[in-house]
Simulated assay, not measured.
Amino acid sequence: MIDNSDVEFYKENGYLLVKSVFNASEVERMREGLERIVQRAAASKADSNAQWQGDFLPPEELKKLVLKGFHDVHYHDASFLQAAVHPNMAAVLSQIIGPNVQLHHSKMLVKPPEVGAAFPMHQDKPYFPHLNDTMLAASVHLDFADEQNGCLRVIPGSHKNGDLPHVGQYYLNHKQYPISQGIPCIANSGDVLFFNYMTIHGSESNRSERTRRNVLYQYREASDYPTENVHINWGQGLMVCGENPNFTKVSPKYQIIE
């Protein structure tokens, strides 16, 4: 899927857009799976608006915006587990992370037409910090994404700037890091944007009449361990490619509480 020049581009810039990782039928299966998840969530009264809160937009604008977001979608529909370990995904991950790659978690993000909420600029690291910073996101596009419907934006090379102070650990100061500062990553359905969890990224609101649907996977090198007890889930550590070199550290430990 990628060559050495792509790997070097990722190392230097902290992101890489890979075209046509998934074909049309695979994308359609994920779209159908996503719709079923939304319907089941609504039927279970678990539906919610996951849009960002804060002072980066006036309150009267914030309350109009919507973001559908659910974590760990590979627990809800098999199409997303199949996508997480897809040979094309593994081929890219093994080159930019290394031979031994684990899945950390997944989530879906849906920006509805005209009212899809923005993401202020931020790093992902504050949410699930790891020792060696090998964690990256792989954003799978289920729709054509451009500036009108709120495509992802990144600041190239920003992963080299270290940990930056976030407002309430959620997003960067929007005056210092406006969304417009990021370069737009325009992508077709089936394309995947890979970016390090230190890379500054965000997206504008969806001002178009088109939905923007993404499935986001977070991956890490198998020997990169969390530094805080946050964002833990039952299936964390699923091997996507390679092997786990640490036989006694293969899954989080849980205690059942009745």
Rank of each mutant, 00 (worst) to 15 (best):
A222Y: 10
G235M: 02
Y219H: 07
N214I: 11
V215S: 01
N233T: 02
E204K: 13
E204M: 12
R212Q: 00
E209S: 10
T211M: 04
Y225N: 03
S208L: 04
R212H: 01
T227N: 07
D224M: 09
R212F: 00
N233K: 00
T227H: 12
H231W: 12
Q236A: 06
S223C: 01
Q218L: 09
Q218H: 12
T211Y: 05
S223Y: 04
N214T: 11
A222R: 13
R213L: 08
P226L: 14
R220P: 02
T227E: 07
N214G: 06
S203C: 06
R213S: 10
T211F: 04
E204S: 11
V215C: 01
N214P: 04
E221H: 14
T227A: 06
Y225H: 07
Y217K: 03
W234A: 04
A222F: 13
R220I: 03
E228N: 15
W234F: 10
T227L: 15
N214Q: 14
E228K: 15
E228L: 13
S205K: 09
Q218C: 09
R207T: 09
S208P: 14
Q218A: 07
R210A: 00
L216S: 04
S203L: 02
E209Q: 09
N233I: 01
D224V: 07
N233S: 09
Y217V: 15
G235D: 03
Y225P: 00
G237A: 10
G202I: 13
P226F: 14
G237E: 12
R213W: 08
R210F: 00
R220F: 06
A222L: 09
G235T: 03
L216C: 07
H231C: 04
N233L: 10
R212L: 01
I232S: 09
R210H: 03
N233A: 05
N214M: 12
G237D: 15
Q236S: 08
S205R: 09
T211W: 07
